[in-house]
């Protein structure tokens, strides 16, 4: 199990991670979403042992990952921009990883090379952005990690390759019990692939749980009233947003759907309905509550 307790990382006075706590079970696909600068990449770097936490701890089965080869050998981290040794080709990079990762599996490497059609003798510097990412993914997956950390995993990949990668990840998770942590801005992909999600904002974990759990907690209700109640009345709910347009009240609230609907119905609306909220909407509402400039995102 991958755990973090009170994980804190500060860069020149500003907290990139502020007391983050989580537990990730083995064999799941974990999505990490958040606004720009929310600390997603920093969190991945702390997990992979690149950064030393200023406070708290993060590691596998209670053992910190920083400066710990036995833990780090179970983790493969692919940053948002893949890096390869200068003037190297895929074959040389495979040799590089083979020399440092005990579990590097040449059969897996060959299999993945057949899935992602790349020339292993060509210089990686001549590859396109998407090809470079494919190459990096081949290498990372070939190390047979227990935990695969992907920062913007699908960035630069075409639709076919996205689907292929998605299938490989799901397959590896099922076959080997690999845990995948994907940090991404692309909530649609996260929603499709992940069975668990965390929402980061300004270094703090503000939501954490299964996809249904996170988006299912938030409900958007529209109700039409003959006599529109005062907005204060709705403050009894865990209100995230409320708007009035004539006799129509639109509100977003957290909590049990039936409880919220029961409360709204108790105000005798002419009409009321609860609309399902997508992960993306849930993400925006959560950030709006925290004062993030949602309007500029919508624009």
């Amino acid at each position: 199990m991958l755990t973090a307790q009170n994980l804190t990382k500060t860069f020149e006075g500003s907290k990139a991670l502020d007391g983050v706590c989580f537990e990730i079970d083995d064999g799941c696909v974990y999505g990490l979403v958040g606004s720009n600068g929310s600390g997603k990449s920093t969190l991945l770097r702390c997990i992979s042992g690149v950064y030393k936490p200023d406070d708290g701890r993060v590691g596998i089965d209670g053992i910190p990952s920083f400066n710990n080869p036995s833990v780090k050998s179970q983790i493969a981290f692919l940053g948002d921009t893949p890096y390869f040794l200068p003037q190297s080709n895929l074959k040389e990079m495979a040799s590089f990883y083979k020399s440092t990762y005990k579990n590097f599996d040449i059969d897996t490497y060959k299999y993945l090379l057949s899935v992602f059609p790349l020339n292993e003798s060509a210089r990686l510097s001549t590859f396109s952005k998407g090809m470079r990412r494919q190459a990096a993914l081949i290498l990372m997956l070939s190390t047979k990690p227990r935990y695969l950390l992907l920062d913007e995993a699908f960035d630069g990949l075409d639709v076919v390759m996205r689907k292929t990668l998605s299938n490989i990840i799901i397959d590896s998770t099922e076959k080997y019990g690999m845990t995948v942590i994907i940090a991404s801005h692309n909530l649609r992909e996260i929603e499709d692939m992940c069975d668990h999600i965390s929402l980061l904002h300004e270094g703090k974990l503000i939501a954490d749980g299964g996809i249904e759990e996170v988006s299912g907690k938030i409900h958007k209700i529209q109700a039409v009233f003959e006599r529109v109640p005062e907005k204060e009345v709705f403050k009894q709910l865990d209100l995230m947003k409320i708007e009035q347009n004539g006799s129509v009240i639109s509100l977003v609230a957290k909590g049990d759907r039936d409880d919220i609907m029961a409360f709204v119905d108790s105000l005798s609306p002419k009409f009321s309905e609860c609309i399902d909220v997508s992960l993306e909407e849930a993400f925006i509402y959560e950030l709006e509550v925290l004062g993030y400039d949602v309007k500029s995102i919508e624009a």
């Binding site: 992979s48 690149v50 080869p69 983790i75 981290f77 940053g79 921009t81 890096y83 440092t100």
Partner: peptide, 18 residues
């Protein structure tokens, strides 16, 4: 001196001293 390369080398299963 580069974040990308630093990520790769520092995530390798070695201690800093190694």
């Amino acid at each position: 001196y580069k974040k990308q390369s630093s990520d790769v080398f520092h995530s390798l299963p070695l201690t800093r001293a190694q």
